[in-house]
């Protein structure tokens, strides 16, 4: 990893990033020469039709996949060519993830799931720190429950607490409300909104206009390219824009 002199107002930046799958006739450019900057302290939603490359974009920005070309910067750290160990360390300290399928470890209690990143980073997880993270998502009283004893919305909130316990620079969320009913989804979005208002950088992929409308800005992707951008739009405006894209 090399440190560049890029101004640090950017949480994550992609510079001319491409990523393809397959070979020959079946080759697909999932992300095609994308330049984008996610500003620090803002919540950005990424939208687009199915197959537009939004999940790949998120995975690239988070260092879960490698770009074929271009550069990926986390703050002022170039992670394009980071080793597996360096990326692992990043996941422990500077990046948090939330996914549609909550991906909690079924054998561990909520509390143990939340403490896991800290233990992996060899930091002694303070009981108070873990409790605080659970309290922040409103689940202080569910600490000893196993994931299967929790509702979907509660499981997703545990996942958010797990992602936030290390106070990451950026929280990546891939369809965080995709598997939730509308009430649970609203609770999760309220949580994310409150975090963004406190200065948390969030990059979220979603296909739900209502969810995207809660973000500060919305990026639109089609066929692996950035095609549009909206700021402070309503769910209605976002939905209209998305429909226009799919035409």
């Amino acid at each position: 990893m090399t440190t560049t002199s890029t101004p640090t107002t950017t949480a994550v930046a992609l510079r001319g990033v491409s990523r393809g799958y397959g070979r020959g006739a079946t080759a697909v450019r999932a992300v095609d020469d994308v330049d984008v900057e996610f500003r620090r302290g803002t919540w950005t939603a990424v939208m687009g039709p199915s197959g537009s490359g939004k999940s790949t974009l998120l995975h690239l920005a988070a260092g879960l996949e490698r770009a074929d070309s271009g550069r990926v910067l986390l703050g002022d750290t170039d992670i394009t060519a980071a080793s597996d160990n360096e990326l692992t360390a990043l996941r422990r300290t500077r990046i948090g993830f939330v996914f549609q399928s909550f991906n909690l470890i079924g054998s561990l209690s909520a509390e143990q799931n939340v403490a896991l990143p800290l233990r992996l980073a060899r930091r002694r997880p303070g009981r108070a720190q873990v409790r605080q993270a659970l309290d922040d998502v409103g689940l202080g009283d569910r600490a000893r429950h196993r994931p299967r004893e929790l509702s979907g919305g509660q499981q997703q909130r545990v996942a958010i607490a797990r992602a936030m316990v290390t106070a990451p620079e950026v929280l990546f969320a891939d369809e965080p409300t995709g598997a939730l009913d509308s009430t649970a989804a609203r609770t999760v979005l309220d949580l994310l909104r409150a975090m963004a208002d406190r200065g948390q950088s969030i990059v979220m992929v979603t296909h739900d206009p209502a969810a995207a409308a809660r973000a500060d800005g919305v990026l639109f992707l089609r066929d692996g390219r950035l095609v549009d951008h909206l700021a402070g739009a309503s769910a209605r405006e976002v939905a209209d824009r998305l429909v226009a894209l799919e035409r």
Partner: peptide, 10 residues
């Protein structure tokens, strides 16, 4: 893989 996702090293 899940362990790796939340920051577990090899």
């Amino acid at each position: 893989a899940l362990l790796r996702l939340v920051g577990g090293g090899r």
